[in-house]
């Protein structure tokens, strides 16, 4: 599953003047951002800072009010259609009572590729798709140590297992860019270590991994690049410099000040 060698000069994500509004509230305000390719990138910010909004805009499920999004130097929608953007949601976003097995969910990661094969094969039922895709599903599940649970119904999985299955679905897609929304929330120590190992390996294989996280210590330790946002970009750069205690507390205060008088108050950052 080696990714194409990314052109390091072209940013994986290039966002200019991005504004996203819900009703009248601005979730993101005129964001300019360039995320380097082939890195493990942590997106950090207080609650309500627009981290998930940023991911959902990249994924295409939210339409920007203004601004442009380019991925690998191309129009984002073109990159989506060619299967180059994999996405891992927060696990509450998905209905775990859905009648699917672990294998069924991970195979969803291959659907984009199956569609790209074109011809009549794109209409095949999941049980009939070629061994190549079944093999990719197996490998992705082995990577997150869930291959013994392939035929288990997803409703019987624990929190950590659910995260790992969603991660496997993103891995199975074999995309150049992985977008992960809080991949470490609500998992036990073992799952957390395993997920971080998998993400580092993906980065080492040349993919770009963007994760939204609350875990400042983890981001400082593992990430190569950090983005601190609070509806605007507060700063980007080396995680050790950017995620200093001083910077974090200033962002949290700024969040509190800028949200004062609105209907919600941003929480301070959780420093783990």
């Amino acid at each position: 599953m080696a990714a194409e060698t990314p052109n390091q000069a072209v940013p994986a994500v290039q966002v200019a003047g991005l504004t996203v509004a819900y009703d009248s509230a601005l979730a993101l305000d005129n964001v300019d951002l360039a995320l380097p390719a082939g890195r493990l990138i942590a997106v950090v910010g207080p609650n309500g800072a627009g981290k998930s909004t940023l991911l959902r805009t990249l994924v295409g499920s939210l339409k920007p009010t203004r601004g442009s999004v380019f991925i690998h130097g191309q129009d984002a929608e073109r990159q989506r259609r060619s299967g180059q953007i994999a996405y891992m949601p927060q696990h509450e976003q998905v209905d775990w009572d859905f009648p699917l097995s672990v294998r069924d969910v991970v195979l969803c990661g291959r659907y984009g590729r199956i569609r790209l094969e074109g011809g009549w094969r794109r209409f095949l039922l999941p049980a009939m798709v070629s061994d190549r895709h079944q093999k990719a599903v197996r490998e992705a599940l082995e990577a997150v140590d869930m291959h013994d649970n392939m035929d288990q119904p997803i409703e019987t999985l624990s929190g950590g297992q659910r995260k790992r299955v969603l991660l496997a679905r993103a891995l199975a897609q074999d995309a150049r860019l992985l977008l992960l929304d809080e991949p470490l929330v609500g998992v036990d120590r073992r799952s957390e270590d395993l997920i971080m190992q998998v993400l580092c390996r993906q980065r080492d294989q040349g993919r770009t991994v963007v994760m939204v996280t609350h875990d400042i210590v983890g981001a400082r330790r593992d990430a190569d690049f950090a983005v601190l946002i609070n509806r605007r970009v507060v700063g980007t750069g080396d995680p050790h410099d950017l995620l200093s205690d001083d910077m974090i507390s200033r962002t949290a205060t700024a969040a509190w000040l800028s949200n004062r008088g609105q209907r919600y108050q941003a929480d301070t950052l959780e420093v783990a």
């Binding site: 959902r56 994924v59 295409g60 499920s61 929608e77 989506r80 259609r81 060619s82 299967g83 953007i85 994999a86 996405y87 949601p89 976003q93 998905v94 209905d95 859905f98 699917l100 069924d104 969910v105 969803c108 659907y111 984009g112 199956i114 569609r115 039922l125 999941p126 679905r169 897609q173 977008l179």
Partner: peptide, 18 residues
């Protein structure tokens, strides 16, 4: 079948695949 499945189960992922 596949498109309906992924749309009903996780519409955001459906969007990420274009």
């Amino acid at each position: 079948y596949k498109e309906l499945l992924v749309y009903v189960f996780d519409p955001v992922q459906a969007r990420s695949q274009g």
